[in-house]
Design a protein around this nucleic acid. Structure first.
Lengths: 210, 210, 210, 210
DNA sequence: ATGTAAGCGAGACGGTACGTCACGTCTTCAC
DNA sequence: GTGAAGACGTGACGTACCGTCTCGCTTACAT
């Protein structure tokens, strides 16, 4: 995870070198204070009501310090969120398509349960529709996260012979990701017992029908 | 479609409720001008950047005229959108589960293609997470719209013997609605040729596996 | 005391001016309720913060009922205040200039002590500087009230031989009215014991020096 | 002349109060632009109809810039006016009571002739009756201006033996200030030729009668 | 007695201004 | 020469009243 601007020069300071006159650099402790404040604000008031002023206030930092690092509230959150999204996410490999799906759903449902996620994601999506830069970043995070894993699961199933070689990948990915997302973000209901297992079974069946 | 607040007063009077002599009434032409302006603003700047001032200006109306009808930007948009959502939506009945799904997807994908829909829906969802009133309205619209139709399709399929009687309905609905929503709102890609047909086939298979 | 506008209509009717069938008439009880409410509002919030809406609300009356009688807050207050001003005010006649002045000051200081008076008068004056109609009404009230009495006192003193026949009247009136007004409205201090008597003596001396 | 609020912060820092690193400071050019705009607005529409929005618009400045300096329209005008009031005002010393009064009246009548003065003063007075802060500021301006000078004139006359030593000062000041104020602000008439001279003569006579 | 116009309370209408908040930029000062 | 503090112009917020304008009563004449 990195700040989108200003990276250069950080390592210089980490050498403990009293920052030689003139070579000023974005201070990492400030950056960190802002990041912390952002998560606190997100939790407290949600994305829409969160303000740069509030973040700076909470972080004990000038507004300038925020703007120097991120161009807007959107970029700030986007940066933080996509950093989270990329974390971990190894492709599961349990030996069967249904097992892999089951594992994927377990991980995904835990992530989507996080209150910040289900609040922030819709906002970012709405903004993406009007701002191509956001759109690109979001798609990138999507590709590298959910999408990549799902893709890996399909490839493994093809290798195992569980799925046809020419399977329509786009559709497959939608079948794998859509239902759980719909439930978590749109319907927002509790997951009934046995839900994830049955979902894995049904999705496997759907994929095999392609 | 009705304004969400003004109704109370009006229906009360029609019940012979004594009506406090000379109660002024919201002018329908003004209401209509606002509605039109809202859609124009939504298209022009999107939900987040849309302002009550802007709407009033565009509608050639005082801000008060808007506030008299809706308590906030959110209620305004919610009212308009849910009115749209409830429109029409007869349950398809083609004689087969797959055929019904195919028809459902055709209609739904057309609705989700509408630029206003894919912009506004995520915003409303994000807000719903913080505002139970919005949450309720959104769930109601969902239940009466998408949910109701999907439910009908399942019932018909059960009647026909295509699905087990005890099928887990919640999961079934997620399987039916999730993938297309994911593609339209999250992935936002074009639908490849044959996508809807293949989706219907795969979903039917998934449902039969429940 | 009369409403300043309503009169026109009423007198026209009394001349048998064809009076279209069923001409309704301003209800006196409503007028009275408004007048009462105005004084209550004046006392409660003062002229500047007083609003027509507030008056109507307090009087349990529609705004229309107020506007039908007076064209503005200013006219309303002006009408009420000038009605008060004209009340009574017989020219004192004690047999000496100083005695007359003493009596005048007693009456005047009591009137100016009324909290409504000292609040409203400056507002009306300020407005008068920009609105000739108000200016005229105010001058009329002044002439018929304070001015008239003072003038009478001077005339009596001239008749008695206490003052010269050719005494500069304008200046005389200013000498008679100014000091007490200055104290009551500008300095707003308590009147020390013996103040009014000493004032009468000094003013008499001043007038005799003209 | 100074802004009434901003000072606190500034002087605190000058006392070595630690000054929280990089405190921003109200820009003097903005302050000046506002002051100019206020006088223009006062002249154009008067105190009552003058709005903060209008001032900001005319000054080419944000509303916040105004509110940052003064808490309300009242404080704003009060600050400006009391600054004016304190200007100059040396006690005249012509060698005789009548001569001093004559000079005082010449200066005062010129000041009261200023259209802003005769419009604003009554408004401030009306407001003072409801707002002790305004009352205090106004009394202070009065004491330091008109009152102080008049007091000086009395003292000189006593020193010269023209007036008794124990003269009732409050009454004396009212006799000196009241008539001219009454004429300028209440009667608002032109000053007839010879008015100021006759007024000085008469007032001197009144004072000597105390 | 009836018809009818005006008065009535209510309150919607297009506005203006309120005082506050946050925006994103710019300036000042301290380290 | 970075970084905090915060002033700047901008623009929207939601509220209060403005003065005008329908609404359906209700009232009290003129016929």
């Amino acid at each position: 995870m990195t700040t989108s601007d200003g990276d250069a020069g950080r390592s210089a300071r980490q050498q403990g070198k009293r920052a030689p006159a003139g070579a000023a650099v974005l201070r990492e402790d400030v950056t960190e204070a802002i990041r912390t404040a952002v998560f606190e604000e997100l939790a407290a008031v949600g994305y829409a009501r969160m303000s740069i002023e509030g973040i700076a206030r909470r972080a004990g930092v000038g507004k300038t310090a925020v703007y120097r690092r991120w161009r807007s509230k959107l970029h700030l959150v986007l940066d933080l969120v996509s950093a989270l999204a990329v974390q971990g996410l190894p492709t599961p490999d349990t030996g069967s398509l249904e097992g892999d799906l089951r594992l994927l759903y377990e991980v995904t449902s835990r992530a989507l349960r996080h209150p910040v996620a289900s609040q922030v994601i819709p906002d970012l999506q709405a903004e993406a529709a009007r701002n191509p830069e956001i759109e690109a970043a979001l798609q990138k995070a999507l590709r590298e996260g959910q999408h990549g894993v799902a893709s890996g699961i399909v490839a493994q199933a093809v290798a195992r012979g569980e799925l046809r070689a020419g399977v329509a990948e786009e559709l497959a990915l939608d079948l794998m990701s859509g239902p759980l997302y719909w439930r978590a973000v749109v319907v927002r209901g509790e997951l009934p017992k046995g839900y994830l297992g049955a979902l894995a079974t049904a999705t496997a069946a759907a994929l095999k029908a392609l």
